[in-house]
Design a protein around this nucleic acid. Sequence first.
DNA 1: TGGGCGATTCGCT
DNA 2: GCGAATCGCCCAC
Length: 190
Amino acid sequence: MRRLRKSFFDRSVLEVAPELIGATLTFNGVGGIIVEVEAYHHTDPAAHSYGGETARNAVMFGPAGYAYVYRSYGIHWCVNFVCEAQGSASAVLIRALEPTQGLPLMRRRRGVADARALCSGPGRLTEALGITRAHNGLPLDAPPFALRERAAVPDIVTGPRIGITKAVDLPWRYGLSGSRFLSKPFKAFV
DNA sequence: TGGGCGATTCGCT
DNA sequence: GCGAATCGCCCAC
């Protein structure tokens, strides 16, 4: 499996997001297979970058291939991969992993034993991997991050994004079809 | 300078 | 299924 380079992210966020499903993400050697992501485009009212650049979202306005980490609900950290050309301010939120590497450490950090509770949610996976604000702005193609390309193209399901109040109808949530490690099930397409 | 508000999670009913 | 926890950010005053 090849490692993903920064140029991989230098495309439309709507193109990159589904291609991340099935890729492997590790942080200091701990992680797993990406099974759920959401795309946030700069023209999208639900995106943090929609209102312009601020101290919090500055990384989103930088070049593609870097990590944007933010505090959610004052409690959790969430990690995004910045995409598109510099200034585009678009990113992919990583929402769930299927844990494959470093499970004992993840169980200790999370305080739970069930593998399905380790990384099935954006706040859960950052806790399991040990990602915090300290890692905001780090490049994705160098340690502690490691991203490996998927071996084959998987079946992907799409649907509306979770937990937002604006642009709720955009189907920019992508998941690995049939995975038991999703943060929430995808509604069957009608 | 202060108050309202989340790209969430967990525990209890 | 519902609501509390919890705090950095952001804008209005």
